[in-house]
Design a protein around this nucleic acid. Structure first.
Length: 563
RNA sequence: UGGGCGGUCGCCAAGCGGUAAGGCCCCGGACUUUGGAUCCGGUAUCGAAGGUUCGAAUCCUUCCCGCCCAGCCA
């Protein structure tokens, strides 16, 4: 159940009006059109949810179409990851998996059609010359000297471009529109370029490839897309797409632009994500710190949380940056209801209960998920020697610190109330190495006399029964909400968080976690949500921290430190 | 200085002439064997200035600010 947080958005309004006026015979057909030149990220998820979501909502269809018009940058590795990611998010394009390259023959025919109508011409200008002739934002461009070639000559040259008679970049096919247009996209844009590259689908069949601008609108048209939803930067291109569609006189989809997603504490551009991977700032596209769907998935995010997030952030035309806290909130909300709870100690501190019998072991009952009684209970062993988290003990407790400190009492979750009697320190380092406590036998959880209250409850694990694990408590990839907020001369890389990856090797988990397999998600009580990483192997458990729990104490302490 | 698009609470975002939804964050408080969860309560006059109107965030005018466009990338 996804609550309807945003009752509407401007795209839904448009579609509803179109439906009312029976614009496309009541049909709603969208598409998600990625270029297979990188991994999908959370920003793409917004587009995927929008396109597939709208189609589902209005009883329509959504295609998956790869915009593969530039073989020099594309690769099958990417098409496979994209397929997997869309599927993982929970969407199904059935048999409608298309490729712009499926339409290369048709696009070629369209180009010939425009040449015949004297609306396109073969231009011999070099890339540099084209730029010079284009003019500037404030000055009109100049006509190419090749603009007036005859239809016959254009037909012949275009044919020969296709036949591979000319070297890379020697000529282009251009639309004959208006070199003085205030919209630079209308200044005789390139439709075809010579690119002697082997294509991941069409192999060496072609040595000329259509530009995105010449392929996209027509691809939508061919597929009968009614609502062609894209991001803001293509607004200026719409007049061009309209021009092609009108000159070709083919089905005219309606393009609607929305603002792409930006998130605090991360970067979301393909260029930068590629740089993070290639420069080794992260372990790969699926590094759990990456905002890629592959990374987020490995981190432990659920598709439900992401879909819900995409619904809540809404869709509009205003450039905006969503607080990552919103994403984290959606995740916690989902996991709170579903994740089984366990106890885990990340930074172990030995605790000995002096008045607890040496060899005694009790099996204590614990609730698997207080939000869902149906998830049942489990047994946890309790004994004389335990581990608690170092965070939960302070020799010199600050104000408001309710946990363990010399002379103070806390409840051990599902067990007894204990009192700290003594602190043992390492002779050399002076570091606290062990805590000696006493327990109150009358306070066992669930027992009749257990109603005594203490300020805090902490988690623990029985030393001899616990199992070891490695835990990676990830933090944001960047130090600042806006990675571009840098000193003069520095770039976004200078804001990378050096502590985004931490590895804790000697964590202790309750024994019920033995045998956990990669992908398993759970909550470590009081700490956060975690999931088993694929790095896990026989005898070596590895957990990723997906997100922490909300932590008021951390805020209080931070406030105290500031003064 | 050309063209396109935007500017409603700290962050997202509804609203389309009838007197500012919701979510996140934040701050109180209740409850609590997770300082979790849950539950209550609190926080904007709509970029600015004029104008039209009984009435404007919504219409008009002018101005200010931000983003995008000069790839044979998408």
């Amino acid at each position: 159940m996804i609550p309807n947080y945003t009752p509407t958005n401007f795209i839904r309004n448009i579609i509803e009006e179109d439906l009312k006026s029976n614009k496309n015979g009541g049909r709603v057909h969208t598409r998600f059109p990625p270029e297979p030149n990188g991994y999908l990220h959370i920003g793409h998820a917004k587009s995927i949810c929008l396109n597939f979501g709208l189609a589902a909502e209005y009883g329509g269809l959504c295609n998956l179409r790869f915009d593969d018009t530039n073989p020099s940058k594309e690769d099958v590795e990417y098409v496979e990851s994209i397929r997997a990611d869309v599927r993982w998010l929970g969407f199904d394009w059935q048999d409608r998996e298309y490729y712009a390259s499926d339409y290369f023959d048709r696009l070629y025919e369209y180009a010939v059609q425009l040449i015949k109508a004297d609306k396109a011409y073969v231009c011999d200008l070099s890339a540099d010359e084209i730029r010079e002739y284009r003019g500037t934002l404030t000055e009109p461009g100049k006509d190419s000297p090749y603009r007036t070639r005859s239809v016959e000559e254009n037909l012949d040259l275009f044919e020969r471009m296709k036949a591979g008679e000319f070297p890379d970049g020697a000529r282009t096919l251009r639309a004959k529109i208006d070199m003085a247009s205030p919209n630079l996209n209308m200044r005789d844009p390139v439709m075809y370029r010579i690119l002697p590259a082997s294509h991941h689908r069409t192999g060496d069949k072609w040595c000329i490839y259509p530009t995105y601008d010449f392929a996209h609108g027509q691809s939508d048209s061919i597929e009968g897309i009614t609502h062609s939803i894209c991001t803001l930067e293509f607004e200026d291109h719409r007049p061009l797409y309209d021009w092609f569609l009108d000159e070709l006189n083919i089905f005219h989809p309606q393009q609607i632009e929305f603002a792409r997603l930006n998130l605090t504490y991360t970067v979301l551009s393909k260029r930068r994500l590629l740089a993070l991977v290639e420069e080794g700032h992260v372990g790969g596209w699926d590094d759990p710190r990456m905002p890629t769907l592959a990374g987020i998935r490995r981190r432990g995010y659920t598709p439900e949380a992401i879909r819900n997030f995409c619904e809540r952030i809404g869709v509009a035309k205003r450039n905006s940056t969503v607080d990552i806290a919103m994403l984290e909130h959606c995740l916690r909300e989902d996991l709170n209801k579903r994740a089984p709870r366990f106890m885990a100690v990340l930074r172990p501190l030995r605790v000995v209960i002096d008045n607890y019998p040496e060899n005694r072991v009790e099996e204590l009952e614990a609730v698997n998920n207080p939000e869902d009684p149906g998830m049942g209970t489990r047994k946890i062993p309790f004994s004389r020697v335990l581990y608690i988290d170092r965070e939960d003990f302070r020799e010199d407790p600050p104000k408001e610190f309710f946990r363990l400190a010399p002379g103070s009492e806390v409840r051990l979750r599902y067990a007894y109330i204990i009192k700290c009697a003594d602190v043992v320190k390492d002779a050399k380092t002076g570091e606290v190495s062990e805590i000696r406590c006493t327990y109150d036998p009358d306070t066992r959880s669930g027992s009749a006399k257990s109603s005594r209250k203490v300020k805090a409850t902490i988690h623990w694990v029985s030393a001899v029964h616990s199992i070891e694990a490695e835990v990676r408590p990830y933090d944001h990839l960047f130090l600042k909400p806006d990675p571009d907020d840098v000193e003069e001369g520095a770039d976004w890389r200078s804001n990378l968080n050096p502590h985004s990856l931490e590895t804790l090797k000697s964590c202790r988990l309750e024994p019920n976690l033995a045998g956990a397999t990669p992908g398993m998600r759970c909550q470590f009580e009081r700490l956060g949500y975690f999931c088993v990483d694929p790095d896990t192997s026989e005898g070596k458990l590895v957990f990723n921290r997906t997100v922490t729990l909300r932590d008021p104490w951390a805020k209080i302490e931070k406030g105290q430190k500031k003064g």
